[in-house]
Design a protein around this nucleic acid. Sequence first.
DNA 1: CTAGAAATGGACCGGCAAGTCCAAAGAGCG
DNA 2: CGCTCTTTGGACTTGCCGGTCCATTTCTAG
Lengths: 201, 201
Amino acid sequence: MTRALTRKGEATRARIVAGAAAEIRERGVDEVRLEDVMARTGTSKGQLFHYFPEGKEELLLAVAQHEADQVLIDQEPMLSNLTSWPAWLAWRDRLIERYLAQGVRCPLNGLLGQAGRRGPGAQAVVTGLMWRWQKAITEGIRHMQSTGDIAPEVDADRAAAALLAGIQGGVLLLLSTGKIDHLEAVLDLTIDSLRSGARTA
Amino acid sequence: MTRALTRKGEATRARIVAGAAAEIRERGVDEVRLEDVMARTGTSKGQLFHYFPEGKEELLLAVAQHEADQVLIDQEPMLSNLTSWPAWLAWRDRLIERYLAQGVRCPLNGLLGQAGRRGPGAQAVVTGLMWRWQKAITEGIRHMQSTGDIAPEVDADRAAAALLAGIQGGVLLLLSTGKIDHLEAVLDLTIDSLRSGARTA
DNA sequence: CTAGAAATGGACCGGCAAGTCCAAAGAGCG
DNA sequence: CGCTCTTTGGACTTGCCGGTCCATTTCTAG
């Protein structure tokens, strides 16, 4: 039942997704025309609908999944190794760097706020991303607790939830205002707060 | 040069904005058709373009401004009176309550992430909102510092920036996942953190 | 080599929704 | 009471863009 794709087909499909992703980053989700994707990727309409029978919707979803994965990959190996304060700071730096470079071009942009409306598929992609992201942070906090660097009374889940929210909001404000200050403030203050909590223990 | 609007005209214009706002809340920005607004408000196309000569764009911008103002109004009188810990908690409760009630229906939704792309007008609306919001929080923190409830070393601006980002992210996650947990965590943990900072002083 | 499946190209269709236009109704004013 | 400016109604135009369709070429297997 899985589509019969030859190697060539596979490559074309990937090219379409990548091209669509680039297009979205540059122009925004709702500004993407199938035609633009075709032009950029050197494909024809027939191909688009051959690889994404459901049409635009399906393509967009594939792109979303692709970009969501990328978000986490871009944070590696830091995100999975939050095992010391220097590691946390390295992660912090990576985030700042990454989003500073990305600027206004957030590929998931259109999705985030409208996940609910864009159908259950989009919803799943977004919640999946957030879930994995938060889980990684939680594990980092737990690890720091195991080494005594973070107070055991800290509710790792709640703290991770707050930090994740802060990051999202920081990025959102970067998107809105062009300033990275909010993201920086969140990361620094939250990490500081986790850190100083150790004294209590 | 300000448009010559009779009282009746003024009323109609307001009705259109309100109707469009409602429509956006229910269906999302990009799903709004002029036709829907007409139907809901009992107006004709002639009227829409009479009151908003630039068309949809201009109408949407008017709605955005309207809703942005509402966001802050909804937080009053708490937001302007963050002068004691009970007051902060009351504000917290109001936020939770408001966004819980609102659920997925965020009128500014489409704007937030795409302010940059939606033209300078939208950008201005969003940054203006964020600016005013953050300023109010900053003033709250400063006041608490003046009464010794928050340590003087706290950088009020930075702390406010972080809190604002947290709130935005919390709302975003509410929109994406339907859960209010993130917003709650941000508010509680951040306020706690500000509170415990007092001990240091 | 060849049959069948996959991949590709691109002409064409159809609907939708923004925006235009003008005619007519209503309201304020001397 | 009639002039003018605002308000209103709604038919019509127009361009865009997603989606359909089929002819053609390329690939793979036996």
